[in-house]
Amino acid sequence: MSTGRSALLFLVLISLGLWGARRWIDVVEVRGQSMAPTLLPGDRLIVVRAPGRVADVVLAFDPRDPGRELIKRVTAVDDWGVTLRGDNPSASTDARMFGELPPSSVQWRAVARYWPPGRIGPIEEAVDCPR
């Protein structure tokens, strides 16, 4: 096999790998204030495909507007569903208004922030996690 062809094959494999990995790991940008001060508008996060556990920051589709994906913190999990709250309760529309969501609606968990550079790191636990 020529060097050119193996380089091309290598690139194709890398691309396919990254494409496949996107099903399990992805990056998203935060909009809105409801997770302040943990997450601020413009923060970019690494999310992984995983169910939400209590205290995790997770993504879930808005039950009232499925076109919108919410980011909130899990404050309770039981047989019936997952309870999501914003860390900034006075500026958050969450389980207090829309109730529990089915566990299947939570598929992604936020694990770390990679942007802005000054705030790189794991997602902090809520200072005062509302229960």
Binding site: D26, G32, R44, R68, E69, W115
Partner: peptide, 13 residues
């Protein structure tokens, strides 16, 4: 790879 694939809403009505 670093470009966000989508916007997620820390939403408030």
């Amino acid at each position: 790879i670093l470009r966000p694939s989508r916007i997620v809403d820390a939403h408030c009505d």
